[in-house]
Design a protein around this nucleic acid. Structure first.
Lengths: 232, 232, 232, 232
DNA sequence: TATGAATGAGTTTTCATTCAT
DNA sequence: CATGAATGAAAACTCATTCAT
């Protein structure tokens, strides 16, 4: 099943077939539940060949993560054409992001769900990609501020937090959209722009939402639902 | 190792110790990589006892999810005291959320990372909790609109999307805060309020961000980074 | 479940309850599949008490075998009243046998199925009972020959073989009757008498069925259905 | 231990070796007491290979039953050449049966002892074989009646009972012969023919052994050896 | 290049059995 | 007399990984 069993293909092609099979299997079954047997069969190859080309399950998974991460970042970068005003860039970058995650659900699952849940090594791999995207978005925010002729006296960390939140919201929306039939990429992008843009605008103009000083007991009072040991 | 090896405790106590050990192990190693052996040892008990009380790895995991989900929702609800204006409720709910996730990183990992990646059954369990929280936030948004004497003609789905995005952003920020030393719960909450509140305000007043009509090629152009099979 | 949970019974009674539960469980589940937990619960006692009274699973099983074997032999002996002519004794002994096995299917299963399949020790225990019954039947055959004023020049071993065959047939019929609704003990007994009596009569009168001398290849030619090693 | 450890054999061969080891182990230890570890070691293979080829303990056991059942039926059918008069057929079939069970004691134990005591599924498997053999014997009985020009007005169920008894006797004799050194297959066969043939002859001629009408108390009087609960 | 044959090491799970009260 | 609490030991099964061809 899967790819038609043709003999003697060039290595590069075979490798892609294996990665296809692996992404699909990892995405659907999860990293640990996916067996090399299943992947090999889906790729239409024998198991030793998989090992010959990809070395080990870990390496195979890493290869999947890298390929999918690259595809996703490239899709986003390709979407957000420089030259446009910052808000337009953000919009089209988001649209490209949602389009891509919708078209490659298994790849998205690998990146967003699997890679982050199975060991530091893999998590670091996606973290790199995420960092890149967050940086990109941060860039856009600052650029937008510049375009609006506002001196961005937003503190460094705050801007990072904002970008982080924006990206996090995008990720959540991507999951939500993938699980909710009938939601288009454009709708998701619009929702997010609506949600975020005005807030950003306000911030750039120095209008912050101010937390009340006195928050007697915020975070205190912990409803102790039976936990025994202190916390960790 | 782990809990001090005290003999002959009443069942209820032992069960909590086991859950503590399990949450910690599942949170750190992941569901599949966590072995019952390790959990038992960390709990200071023999494996058969774990099975006697918690039945199976699946049941144990479910029990963890339930306990942590309950603790988290209760923390949030306890934080967001009704009676306050909606924005204050949102703020304090968020603060409680970030406080809780920071204090219980393993519990948070179980809920946010592990439960969602290891089978529909577990995913459903957290989905329920998430739905509850999203509903709560949706409530708050509508209430805020009412308080602002704005006719909330926001379409149903849009509000859902907003709440979804807000919660998603909160989740991402929680991860980020846990990974970035020195970020306090209040800071995270403030960032998110800043990010979201003005946007929400605009929306409530009917000022939408309008996507450009013509987006020739949005989502097209897929950077083909070597994928072989069509897409799936 | 099972016996009503009454406290503080004399030891003898409790022991019988345990044996009842054990026979039932062993008979239905099989020796190995029966768990001490299940037996204890069915007996309405705690597991340690079972161990206190019966020592171990092996001892418990042995106790079951002994009790059931005793009950069966006594039933048969009680059925075959001495004083009657030999054929009538055989008949009524058989009837008693079929009646008992029909009334105590679990006990019969313990003796005939379980005890013989789970280790030499248990097998020896039933073998003793079986030997006793076979001896009894042998007795009856010889007596019958005497009654018929036939000099029993039947060779020792042949008589043993006959008794063995008769008992074996009875056992098979007991199983068959237990599995076939509507077959009464008297029917089974009659079938067996019909089957055996005339043959015995012939033998006693010296009329043997003579095997053909030349049996070229009897038992040879073994259809070799794939067996690898010689035979054992 | 066991088969010589030769590496890299074709699958079919290894499978037979495994079945050999399994039959031996199951026959001697019993189904439940036999461990896959022991079987694998005896077969000179690692456990995973056993699972790879035979799937599970249940499947392995079923495969054993099937192989041994096939071998036994084929041996019997090959022994009882059609064309001979019915008594000769019966004789040579029996001889073949006793020869086979004597040569393959473990196979016989698997079929006669183990398969019938460890779950309906396995029992059904041998039941099928037994049914086949009983039918074969029934055939022979009717044929014999025809040959003797006797109108076989033997009632259906009675003939079944007879065949059942005959087969049961044969089974018991096989066990007995296996346990008693020095008993040959021909002796067993002769014993059984002597036991049965004249009786069958009588029956076919309508001479039944008639049970006494009045059997006051047959089956009653149950020697109550301590049973507590009613009976079941 | 490609694979059928094979395994070491580990997993979850179960059970007879025993303390301490 | 009776039991809730606890475990050592082993069983079935799986999987990533590697030879030998």
């Amino acid at each position: 099943m899967g790819a038609v069993k043709t003999k003697r293909m060039p290595r590069a092609v075979r490798e892609q077939q294996m990665l296809d099979a692996a992404v699909r299997t990892f995405g659907q079954r999860g990293y640990m539940a996916a067996s090399m047997d299943e992947i090999a069969e889906l790729a239409g190859v024998s198991k030793p060949l998989v090992y010959l080309y990809l070395n080990s399950k870990e390496d195979l998974f890493t290869a999947c993560i890298r390929r999918e991460a690259k595809a996703l970042t490239e899709a986003v970068r390709a979407g957000a054409r420089p030259g446009l005003p910052a808000d337009r860039q953000l919009w089209s970058g988001l649209a490209a992001f949602f389009t891509h995650t919708a078209r490659h659900p298994d790849g998205w699952a690998v990146l967003h769900l699997q890679a982050r849940t199975h060991g530091e090594v893999f998590a670091a791999e996606v973290a790199a990609m995420r960092t890149e995207i967050v940086a990109f978005v941060t860039q856009l925010i600052l650029e937008a501020a510049r375009e609006a002729h506002r001196d961005p006296d937003l503190p460094e960390r705050e801007v990072s937090g904002l970008a982080e939140a924006l990206v996090g919201a995008a990720e959540a929306l991507a999951d939500w959209a993938n699980a909710t039939p009938g939601v288009t990429a454009r709708q998701s992008a619009a929702t997010l722009m609506n949600f975020a843009w005005a807030g950003l605008g306000n911030l750039m103009e120095g209008r912050h939402w101010t937390p009340p000083d006195d928050e007697a007991g915020v975070g205190a009072g912990e409803a102790q639902t039976g936990r025994t040991s202190p916390v960790r």
